[in-house]
Amino acid sequence: MVYIKILFQYILVFFVILIINFALPRIAPGDPAIYLVGDDIQYMSEEERLQVLKEFKLDLPVMQQFKNYITGIFKKDLGVSIIYGRPVWDILRDRLPWTFLIMGVAMLFSASIGIILGVIGAWKRGGRRDIGSLVIVMTLGSVPPFWVAMLLITLFSAKLHWFPSFGAYAIGAIPGTFAYFVSVLQRIILPVLTLTLVKTGAMFLTARSSMVIAMEEDYVMLAHAKGLKEKTVIFRHALRNAVLPIYTNIMMGLGAMVGGAAIIETVFSYPGLGNTIYESVTARDYSLLQGSFLVVSISILFFNFIADLGYPLLDPRVRKQTVGR
């Protein structure tokens, strides 16, 4: 019953998001007709402007556009992109896998490194290792991502010629071949490294602070008093209780993962969704924006839902509360 209630809440939120996704691009300043006809827009009559918008069904009354948008979602018809003149769904389908790839791998690395460093930091709190990690991770986390990206490109592409500086794969390579696979690997290293460097900070701080709080709890003192090994105290008692905020952080990261990293993808000319969102915002490409936001929203909702389902499994206290309701 509780889960049905949660599911219902998510469905409600989803419809609110749909409305926001539709309204937001239209509320923002800008006009897709300007992208389509450029400077000439200033000399065009309203009829001429509507004629241009008609090709993308943007001349229709707003409510009709909203109806088309909602019904289109269920028919897998997200409209046609103004920038590319192609179905939005086709564009998103091409770009999502690349975003999943770099964001997923970066998430894996940043979460693993962040948690390990955070746990060690909390364990050796105030020590040289803790302070060192804190300074390094915080410094990297506060540096603009594009700057890190440019440094890595300059070093590894321009100076050392180790890795390519742009794209997701070698254009001539045939998908499915070993050469293609290697070209993909070569091209994910720099974006993933950049993302890992700038994203590890958040995970480190969450893990460290959760662990610090857990380490000060009475049950940890009791475990110590019982003469348990340090590792057992850390991993079986403290970390297990500190895992909820870390889990939440990971789930939120996974949800936001689909949104990509617009700046990083732009710097590396990586054909992901972040790059697409950036392009569609610039051109006020309503259909592409709606489609991109829709995918991002679904992803965030999905992982939040999974997170909600996971809490009771991770924490018996939540389980009891859930059962008690």
Binding site: M150, I153, T154, S157, A158, H161, P164, S165, F166, G167, I171, G172, T266, V267, F268, S269
Partner: peptide
């Protein structure tokens, strides 16, 4: 001719210098 889209100015010229 393969024309690759590289929007970032620095990336494009770095790619030129590195021979990509």
């Amino acid at each position: 001719l393969t024309l690759v889209v590289i929007k970032d100015l620095s990336t494009m010229f770095t790619a030129l210098r590195s021979g990509e």
